[in-house]
Design a protein around this nucleic acid. Structure first.
Lengths: 343, 343
DNA sequence: TAGTTAAACTAAATCGGTTTAGTTATGTGG
DNA sequence: CCACATAACTAAACCGATTTAGTTTAACTA
């Protein structure tokens, strides 16, 4: 029934003895403006409903050059941070009448470039991209072509585009300051190899906080792991930080997964958190309040970020009807728990 | 460049002074079998590469009635369990040459039915569905039409279809038995309102374990929450279980999110876990080993489930080349941690 | 009463591919 | 030298919609 007895536009036209044009116009709510009589409209609509007509989106998209679809390219749909974005983007887009096509780049710039092409070929009307930040060319091409897109979570500093990101600098600065206020002075940072602007900003925020407290920067306390292999590298990193007694009294982790593996390793080494080493996390997992100890985290405004990205994008697709700010840097929120110790 | 200077099939044909047919055949690797000369093939391929030709998928899909796309319908992409499935499905499908179209039903049968239609209209070649289990009609329609699909995580007991699910009964039984072996006798179950077969099986597994230990079933110890409102209802539920001193000595939670909110509530009430109340979880979050106490969980074979679903589906799409079992019930794994107490 | 206008409709082109059913030119066997 | 293959190619139909540029008929106006 769903597939085989499919009704097509021409079937309706034939049965009702009207033209395909009439059927198409009526079913697209253009009956009135094209002066199709109420009578005819009614019989078309009734027949279509009765026979469960739904237009073939491929044909529709092809002939209109539109698809009512937007694409979302993220590094990894399995990562809870991005899956939340995906969920909110899907919801918001659906509310505004659009379908979302997702795809994961797995942090691979080539794959990302392919995905952009592939989505364009599927006639998406706009893109939301959490980019690898290594496809400046493609981004510039999109801009040149005036193709609607919004960068989310990660943007290109060298290119003026729409974007919605988090204030990574201040988020990181605030959480580092919090450790400083609690009297910690030997603060380690476990982060990713630079490349992503967000990661750079988190490093700078950390620097800035130390600087404000007149603490000399010690590069041995900053460990940069690779995205692909952080699970193995974390042991080295933590080992490095704990090489000498009292070499660190606290650690800032710059992503939720670094926090997880880091804490796991600290536990394995029987390091007391927060007594011996306090820890804080940039970004969080939903169970971080249940963890032993509950983890002080910088919480990112995932929902806002997603909603705003969709709003900016669809506003652009639909011809800038509203006057929406097209670059947004959102505040994060510091959630203080026990892993950083207490006053 | 990406969008505006697009090259079409006819452009290539015109420039090289050959027919659209030739170009199409060659670019679809059908040059040899259609006796297009090597020379012509080379010039077409070279030109296409040089000008970055990529076929319009809508047109391609429309004319071939195919799309090299499969659909994945899940309850909620934000849920880590389903986002992991999405990730693995995407990866596996991509390896086999297919793109995945995701969409969330939000547990709404109507929305699910719409999504099925909408995906069919987009000419997906097959579907993987983690269903609300309230669309038997649609499922039967798909079957009638011999449309390829595989149910994942949740299947219809009244309908013979392809499916890949977890052995919920034995998973639940095993984890309940584990509590029994540890001497717990007043075991509560916090679960969802029945409706999903998986949830029923988890209840039955719990029953069966109690039965094997000759423990009379006490229906006051089984609390069924609604999917929409479990966060509020959990307080009532835990309150109910703890109404009288020693009314329960342990709780089985039947989903990861029930475990999270349940533990949160137990902590709020200062209940000592596992001393006063041991807890175990069916399904887990990635941080459950870091939680206080680390949570004993039934781990579901998400990766296998996803891979097998894709294999079954694509095998069917491509005409059953291989002989693959089309119904699979996978074992889960009990991960013993501290939340259930120790021997 | 010829000329306009508006209402109600439709034929056919189009989107960008795939595919069927040819055509043309050359070579080969009897 | 004719009949027939074969190699190399192509014209045109088709997929299922949308949309442009009409057409027909009746009513209205000057």
């Amino acid at each position: 029934m769903l597939v085989m007895k499919k009704v097509f536009l021409k079937d309706i036209a034939k049965k009702l003895d009207v033209s395909k044009t009439a059927v198409s116009l009526v079913l697209n709510n253009k009956g009135d403006e094209n002066k199709i009589s109420q009578e005819t409209q009614k019989k078309i609509i009734d027949y279509a409903k009765k026979h469960n007509y739904v237009p073939n989106q491929l044909a529709r998209g092809l002939s209109r050059g539109k698809s009512e679809t937007i694409g979302l390219i993220i590094p990894n749909i399995s990562d809870t941070f991005y899956s939340k974005i995906a969920g909110y983007v899907e919801l918001k887009a659906k509310n505004l009448g659009y379908t979302v096509l997702f795809s994961s780049s797995n942090e691979d710039p080539k794959k990302e470039a392919e995905l952009i092409r592939s989505m364009l070929n599927r006639q998406v009307e706009g893109l939301i991209i959490a980019s690898t930040q290594q496809n400046l060319k493609e981004i510039e091409s999109l801009k040149e072509d005036k193709f609607p897109f919004v960068l989310i979570d990660r943007h290109y500093t060298d290119s003026e585009t729409n974007y919605v990101i988090v204030d990574n600098f201040n988020g990181s600065k605030t959480v580092t300051e919090h450790l400083l206020k609690l009297g910690r002075r030997k603060i380690g940072l476990i982060t990713l190899k630079p490349g992503l602007e967000a990661i750079k900003q988190r490093l700078l925020g950390y620097h800035s906080a130390l600087n404000d407290y007149n603490i000399e920067f010690n590069k041995n306390l900053v460990l940069e792991l690779s995205t692909e292999n952080y699970e193995d590298e974390i042991k080295m990193a933590i080992g490095e930080l704990l090489k000498f007694p009292n070499s660190v009294d606290s650690i800032v982790f710059s992503t939720h997964y670094l926090t997880s593996v880091g804490l796991r390793e600290l536990k394995r080494l029987n390091v007391k958190v927060p007594q011996e080493v306090a820890i804080v996390s940039f970004d969080e997992l939903s169970a971080f309040d249940l963890v032993d100890p509950p983890i002080t985290s910088v919480i990112q405004p995932v929902k806002d970020m997603s909603n705003i990205a969709v709003e900016i994008l669809i506003n652009e697709i639909e011809g800038m009807k509203e006057n929406i700010e097209n670059t947004r840097i959102l505040d994060s929120k510091l959630e203080i728990r026990k892993s950083c110790g207490t006053f």
